[in-house]
Design a binder for these strands. Structure first.
Lengths: 154, 154
DNA sequence: TTATTGGCCGGATAAATGACTGATATTGAC
DNA sequence: GTCAATATCAGTCATTTATCCGGCCAATAA
């Protein structure tokens, strides 16, 4: 149920890189029969190791050339600021990730927008418009050194 | 070559959520024939909108329970510190993302490890071992509010 | 008008898939 | 060593899928 062997890890590793690989090819790359691989993959999906499959899109090609990270500090006066902020973040399409962190600020937001103009609009109309947001610090990404790396399963 | 219409965006949107969807189902969800969808998708891949497909894995299930962000400041004394750091980051499996940012520090690193013990090892043996690393600030994620959101293609 | 281009469609073929079967290791407990 | 449980394998078969091909239609340009 929760244990996973070397072959499973290999399956996951290959599937991370190519989620659309055919079962037969996956099988012969690993050196087992397609039946076994199919059963293993089914189990991996049932047990929650594989949550789904998705296409990797090129953000720049889609006009989302600017990646920004925003540190957000909240007013801890009202008790439900955290919930309300978390909820609002879910609906904002620009926000790709949002994490509550321990340290100097409360939330770290990762967002993608077209350019600086779009970012200023997003900041003003989405982030700062939220109640309880006391302060934000923006870091614009100049160069994406490493992006979308696979999880280390091996 | 570079233009993209509403149907294309719909294709990309669906494929982001389910990268393994069959062409026929994709076609009937959109309302076109499988042939057309196939041709469009082929074009989208050829023109670089779709870079690939991948399985979405559950990091917690794989024993990677701790997500951390690390702000890294470099010594700008040697001219090639940036290149060397960027290169080293590529080979570190714990590092999922690394971005050069404008602002108070130089690099923002996103990494996944098993726990705090593993993180301390990673910090000491990987990050701080790199020449030119002057200072780091670590932010451990307490709660992942939003994770792996799709790019806003619509 | 005529030709051309691009997008869409439907048919046909070859491949892959999923679901089953039964046989054969391999493993671990007793 | 024996036994049961598990995993793998090969094989079959119906179904689904991807892809190629030719033809259709509308918009555009000559």
């Amino acid at each position: 149920m929760t244990d996973i062997d070397k072959i499973d890890r290999k399956i996951l590793s290959i599937l991370q890189a190519d989620g659309r690989i055919a079962n037969v090819e996956l099988a012969e790359r690993i050196g087992l029969s397609p039946t076994s691989i199919g059963e293993r993959l089914k189990r991996l999906q049932r047990d929650g190791f594989v949550e789904g499959y998705g296409a990797r899109l090129n953000p720049h090609r889609l006009g989302l050339g600017l990646l920004v990270f925003v540190e957000v500090m909240l007013d801890k006066t009202t008790p439900d600021v955290f919930e309300r902020f978390a909820k609002a973040v879910q609906t904002a399409p620009e926000v790709l990730e949002c994490h509550m962190v321990a340290g100097g600020f409360d939330y770290l937001v990762k967002a993608r927008v077209a350019d600086m103009t779009a970012y200023r609009r997003f900041l003003g109309e989405s982030l700062l418009a939220l109640p309880g947001v006391r302060e934000t610090r923006t870091y614009a990404v100049m160069e994406e050194v490493k992006r979308d790396a696979p999880l280390p399963v091996g």
